[in-house]
Amino acid sequence: MGEFRSLQLVPKAEALQTAKEFKSDQEVRWCPGCGDYVILGTVQAFMPELGIKRENTVFVSGIGCSSRFPYYMNTYGMHSIHGRAPAIATGLAATRRDLSVWVVTGDGDALSIGGNHLIHALRRNVNLKILLFNNRIYGLTKGQYSPTSEQGKITKSTPMGSLDAPFNPVSLALGAEATFVARAVDSDRPGLMSVLRAAAQHEGTALVEIYQNCPIFNDGAFQVLKDPGTADQAVIRLEHGEPIAFADRGVFRDPATGELEVREVTEANRAQVLVHDAHAASPVTAFALSRLAGNDALHHTPVGVFRDVERPVYDTQLAEQLEQAVAQKGAGDLAGLLAGPDTWTVA
């Protein structure tokens, strides 16, 4: 268990922790079969790996089914208001570099009502780990379409089909200057674990999109990524430095257009299979990868880390400015400040 780069200032746990220690005493109240259970279990199992004091961990959420998450973690937590968790967590992370701050949000919370806060958190690169549970539906309000629902979706609020084109959260994050973007599927515990590990390592804001099944209002939305019969053909696992290949196929760059495309891998073209570079300075290829699946379909869905690059971290720089100000002007002298340069005395 190595040290996590983004947690260097967080006090270390004295003893090895267990998943159980991270379970709160609150009864979990998601619907039976909800993907959130698996994610919660995976996160609780992952937290001991961080090796930090439990009391220095904070989960902040917005509103929605996923946003009940903090109640179930035996850490500090705040269940805030709709869409605002990234903003609230930004204030916390920017002032407390000794904390590991996690945001739990959903597709409606993060991409609809809270879209502005999400994109600005990403460009700002505050030390936050954002887990975006994407079930492509509004669950807590009982089944309206969400900003990630496929176009034409029939829901309670769209009986004749939804009209708006969906967001692709990974594309959006890359466009918002995110330094770390990854995707995982709720039921794929090892895949989710590995992405959480990479996110925790990353210094700055990390966005992890987690495809999450809503058994009540959008059941089976990601089934094609889970069924043994289809998953092989649908899921593309991204590993930094490895060729992007799955089943008998691979991802190639069309030299004429620069676009990415999926083709059968043959002996002749094997060397041309695109090698994944998560650390590439340019987000162009990561963006192209995020578009492979298309908006409404899931075949050719990359999972894993799309992008993981270094950029100065907001809270680090803020702290440096404070130190610099003290170095330049000395620690604040209140009496001197209040007096200012121009005074007069009345006897």
Partner: peptide
């Protein structure tokens, strides 16, 4: 929001 997070 950030001010409230900082207050927390």
């Amino acid at each position: 929001g950030a001010a409230l997070g900082a207050a927390f």
